Amino acid sequence: MSVPGSRVRAVSDTALTRQAAQDYVDRLERRDWPGLAGLLADDVTYEMPQTRERIRGREAFLRFNIEYPGDWHLRVRRLVADGGSAALWLDVRVGDERQDACVWLEVSEGGLISRVIDHWPEPYDPPPGREHLVERW
């Protein structure tokens, strides 16, 4: 059974999610912290499964990125969105080192990012100096 208008809404949600995902990477790359804040839900959750770290809340997530060391750069290799979910394959560069990252985003109906999960190629211990921002699990 098809619900009238449901396809239109799903396409609209997908377009909103896709734009939020692209804006997320663009604002991180430009270090546009106020612009990034405008994309995030107040209670956004950021997780890094390899280090088992979780950051809760917009302010802590912004601070984490502002304080992140090195001259890092992001470029979208692939972005796929469906409804309120997006997957990003990123080319990440820190100095001369290059890595791939896979990022999953959950976007609310209002277009705000509510959850970010960053997957890196291999598990690693977190670097010191950010214990005040994260909880380990």
Rank of each mutant, 00 (worst) to 15 (best):
Ala60Lys: 11
Arg63Ala: 14
Ala20Phe: 05
Arg63Thr: 15
Arg98His: 15
Glu53Leu: 14
Glu67Met: 09
Trp33Cys: 04
Arg77Trp: 07
Pro69Thr: 00
Arg75Pro: 01
Arg30Asp: 12
Pro121Ile: 04
Asp96Met: 07
Glu53Asp: 10
Arg27Trp: 02
Ala86Met: 03
Thr17Glu: 02
Arg115Cys: 13
Gln19Phe: 04
Ala20Thr: 08
Met48Asp: 03
Trp33Ile: 04
His73Ile: 02
Arg115Gly: 10
Asp71Pro: 05
Thr45Gly: 07
Leu62Ala: 03
Pro121Thr: 05
Arg54Met: 07
Asp91Lys: 09
Pro121His: 06
Pro69Val: 00
Leu112Trp: 02
Glu29Asn: 10
Ser12Gln: 13
Cys102Met: 14
Gly35Lys: 00
Ala20Asn: 03
Asp100Asn: 07
Arg27Leu: 07
Leu40Tyr: 04
Val116Pro: 00
Thr14Phe: 06
Asp82Asn: 13
Thr51Tyr: 01
Leu74Thr: 00
Leu39Cys: 06
Gly70Asp: 02
Gln22Tyr: 03
Pro69Met: 00
Gln99Asn: 13
Trp72Gly: 08
Ala37Phe: 02
Trp72Gln: 04
Leu39Pro: 03
Pro121Ser: 09
Ile66Phe: 08
Arg18His: 13
Arg27Lys: 13
Gln22His: 09
Gly95Lys: 07
Trp72Asp: 03
Leu74Ala: 02
Trp89Val: 12
Asp32Ala: 06
Cys102Gln: 11
Leu39Glu: 01
Arg78Thr: 08
Thr45Pro: 02
Val76Ser: 05
Asp100Glu: 13
Val11Trp: 11
Gly111Pro: 01
Arg31His: 14
Asp118Asn: 13
Tyr24Pro: 05
Ala15Asp: 14
Glu106Gly: 12
Asp118Phe: 06
Glu97Val: 14
Arg54Lys: 06
Gly70Tyr: 04
Asp13Asn: 04
Pro34His: 00
Gly35Ser: 00
Trp89Ile: 14
Tyr68Arg: 12
Gly111Leu: 03
Pro121Leu: 10
Phe64Met: 08
Gln50Thr: 07
Thr17Asp: 02
Gly57Ala: 01
Ala41Ile: 03
His73Pro: 00
Leu28Met: 13
Leu74Phe: 07
Asp82Lys: 12
Thr45Cys: 08
Asp13Met: 11
Arg115Trp: 10
Leu90Cys: 07
Arg77Gln: 13
Asp82Ser: 14
Arg7Met: 12
Asp26Cys: 06
Glu59Lys: 14
Arg52Phe: 04
Arg31Gln: 14
Asp82Ala: 13
Arg30Leu: 08
Arg54Thr: 15
Leu74Pro: 03
Arg18Pro: 01
Ala86Lys: 01
Arg9Val: 15
Glu53Pro: 02
Arg98Ser: 11
Val94Ser: 05
Arg30Gly: 06
Ala21Pro: 03
Arg9Thr: 14
Glu29Tyr: 07
Ala60Leu: 09
Arg18Trp: 11
